[in-house]
Each structure stands twice: as structure tokens, then as C-alpha cells.
Design a protein around this nucleic acid. Structure first.
Lengths: 112, 112
DNA sequence: GCCCGGTGTCAGAATCTCTTTACACCCCCG
DNA sequence: CGGGGGTGTAAAGAGATTCTGACACCGGGC
């Protein structure tokens, strides 16, 4: 994931994904190396269902990737790791991205 | 506002402010020049109370600034303009910002 | 006086996000 | 067989945001 321009909707999703203390802390923990869910839950002191929810959002925003590793003995462990990324935003980029927002018409120019 | 590192909480606020289609569209509109509230409401086709709410959030995040201009005849008009800004984020920056989050202890290191 | 265009706020509904509790299933070990 | 450690999800509650409608006030022009 690079700092490339994304569509407005993706920008909103990405911002929403980063707009959470829990998710920031999750990213921080994963930036130190991959970990599996239960371990992470212990480190961050939150129960797994909650962690799952946040991990899903992070994964949806392509900020982390999950990999379910099934050991030869059949036991399975799900590892997560952070995806390196770079975001560069300024007013112009935001204005540009806003044009690609779905759901409503572009709100006409200054016609007057 | 520069791309300087901010505290974790500020980061969350900023991300939250940008995580909204409406607010993105407001910023886009204001990037073309200052406008007053009612005009903006017409352009973006949303009612004023709603617009007010979003403007307040944007102002709280220092993305826009409002100025109530009272004409000599007594009529008042509130102009808003976008604040130029730059955000540069990557995984390391996020991890670093997460350490300055208030509200819970840093979630101890990998002590094992 | 009445209408029109402003600013500003409040109460309530609708909606979404976050959070917890509880459950289902799997595997190995004592 | 009864834990202990995993992965998942469903359901329901709590909380926060978002959105709408109605109101109050001000000034100008017909």
C-alpha cells in the first residue's frame, strides 16, 4: 500500500480505520512483529470478540493481514501482521478525492 | 498545520474528522474559496443544523476556520475557509503516536 | 405587517459503532 | 473425561454519531 491517491470512499474507510485508539494500539503492537489473536488480546487487555472486530476493520482497510496457520497436529493459530503503508494527504488531495465519492451528486460548481 | 507528529489523541481526532463523506465534500467546497454557511448548505444540499455540526468538527480539528462578519448595516454572515494542511503517516508514526494515547496503560512490552 | 435571508440552538429520532456475555467447535495432555 | 488453549460467531446491550424538524432572533425590502 503506497501513498497513491485512492478513491474518496477508500479514503473515508482508511480514515475511519485509523480513528480509534484501540486500532492504533493494535497497529503499534503488530508493528513489532506478527502475533496471533489470543496473544494480542492478552497484551492489549481486551477480550477476543472485541479484538476480532477491530482486526476485521483493519484488515478491510488493508492495514493488517491475517493468516490462519494450521499446525500438522491440527491445532490452528491465526497470525496477524501489520501492512507497511504511507499516507500523504493535503487539502488538494482531499478535495480531489471528494469528487470520487459515491452516494450523492458532486454538488455543482460555483455556477452563479 | 504541518505534517508534524501529533499526540495519539489528536491523531484520532483528525482521522475521525476526515472519516466522513460530508466533511470531505465540505473541505472540497471550501478549498475553492471561502463561503458562508447558508450558501454552503445550498451548494452541498444539506440543511444547516447538519452542516453546522460538521463544520464544528472540522473546526475542532483545525481543518477550517470560521469568521463571523457583521456588515455595517448589522446583518451578519459567517464565513468559513479551509486551513491548508499536510498529513504524512506511516506504520512507524502510528506506532509512535499510539504510545501517547491517554485512557489506558501502554499495554506492556513483549515480556513473555 | 409580512416575507425573505441570515445565524444559532435544542430536542428527539434514527442509525451506527463499540463492547460484553455466551456459546460452538477443535486439538492435546494428565 | 475434564481441563486448557486455540478459533470463530451470534445476540443483545450500551454508547456515540448523525440527521431532521422546529424554534428564536436579527435586518431589509415590498
Amino acid at each position: 500500500m503506497s501513498g497513491t491517491l485512492r478513491t474518496g470512499d477508500e479514503l473515508v474507510s482508511l480514515m475511519a480505520a485509523l480513528a480509534s485508539p484501540h486500532r492504533l494500539r493494535i497497529l503499534a503492537a503488530l508493528s513489532q512483529g506478527r502475533t496471533y489473536v489470543s496473544e494480542l488480546a492478552r497484551r492489549l487487555q481486551m477480550n477476543r470478540p472485541l479484538l476480532y472486530m477491530h482486526l476485521q476493520k483493519l484488515e478491510a482497510a488493508n492495514l493488517v493481514t491475517g493468516e490462519l496457520v494450521t499446525a500438522p497436529d491440527g491445532s490452528s493459530v491465526k497470525y496477524f501482521q501489520a501492512t507497511p503503508f504511507t499516507v500523504s494527504l493535503d487539502l488538494a488531495a482531499v478535495a480531489l478525492a471528494a469528487q470520487t465519492l459515491t452516494g450523492a451528486e458532486p454538488a455543482r460548481e460555483q455556477e452563479k
